[in-house]
C-alpha cells in the first residue's frame, strides 16, 4: 500500500466513524430534548408526579384564571369534557376539578391523558397533587367515569401571567399498552 493509500484509509475510517457518530447523535437528541425542556421549563409539559401540598402560602390579593380544554385523539370513540370550563383561583389555593369521560363504543378501551399548559412558561408553576393523567384510564364498553384533578398554582407565578390554560388530550393506547406502560409511566 502506498503512503497515499494508507492516509486515505485512515481518513476514510475517521469520516465513517464520524458519520456513524452523527447517526447516534440524532437519537441522542431525543433524551436531550426532554432534559432541555425539563430544565428550562419550556414546552408546557407539567410535572408527571404528584406534588405535595404543605405550608403553601395563599396569595389572597391575586387571582388567576384557569381554563380547561379537552381533546380526544381523532377516531377515538370517547367523549371527554371538563365539568366547568373555567375557574378563578388564588395562587397557593388547593382546588378540585372534575372531568367526565364516556366510552361510546362497544369495546373496552384504555385511554391516556396527556396534559399541556399554555403559556409554556407557566407550566412549571402548575402543581398537581392528584391527577388522572398520572394513570391509564381503562374504560369498559359504554361505561363512563368521573376523573379527578387536585391542583394549586405556585405563588411565584410571574405577574405577567393572569390566565393558565390546561389542555388534556386523550389518546387510545389499547394497542400500545405494553410500550406506554414502560415509557408513559416514566413521564
Amino acid at each position: 500500500m502506498s503512503p497515499t493509500q494508507k492516509s486515505n484509509r485512515k481518513l476514510l475510517t475517521m469520516l465513517i466513524l464520524g458519520s456513524i457518530g452523527m447517526f447516534g447523535f440524532g437519537f441522542a437528541l431525543v433524551p436531550l430534548y426532554d432534559v432541555l425542556c425539563d430544565t428550562l421549563g419550556i414546552n408546557g409539559k407539567t410535572q408527571n408526579s404528584a406534588s405535595t401540598y404543605d405550608s403553601v402560602v395563599v396569595d389572597k390579593k391575586r387571582t388567576v384564571t384557569i381554563e380547561f380544554v379537552t381533546q380526544v385523539q381523532s377516531g377515538m370513540p370517547w367523549e371527554f369534557s371538563p365539568k366547568v370550563n373555567q375557574i378563578t383561583v388564588h395562587p397557593g389555593e388547593l382546588t378540585h376539578a372534575k372531568f367526565e369521560v364516556k366510552n361510546l363504543s362497544a369495546k373496552n378501551i384504555i385511554g391516556q391523558a396527556i396534559p399541556s399548559v399554555s403559556p409554556g412558561q407557566g407550566a412549571a408553576y402548575f402543581n398537581k397533587t392528584e391527577c388522572f393523567c398520572f394513570n391509564q384510564q381503562p374504560l369498559a364498553a359504554d361505561a363512563s367515569a368521573e376523573l379527578p384533578l387536585i391542583f394549586y398554582v405556585d405563588a411565584d407565578l410571574p405577574a405577567s401571567i393572569n390566565t393558565l390554560t390546561l389542555s388534556y388530550t386523550l389518546y387510545d393506547i389499547t394497542d400500545k399498552q405494553a410500550v406506554s406502560a414502560k415509557q408513559g409511566a416514566a413521564r
Binding site: G26, L29, V30, Y33, D34, N43, Q73, Q112, I114, T169, Y171, D172, I173, D175, K176, A178, V179, S180, Q183, G184, A186, R187
Partner: peptide, 19 residues
Amino acid sequence: GTSFFDAAGGGDPVMFQHI
C-alpha cells in the same frame, strides 16, 4: 410501536421538527 413523536406514548411531535 415506538412513540418518539406520539404524545400518547410520552413522545412529542414538535421534537420531530427540531430533529
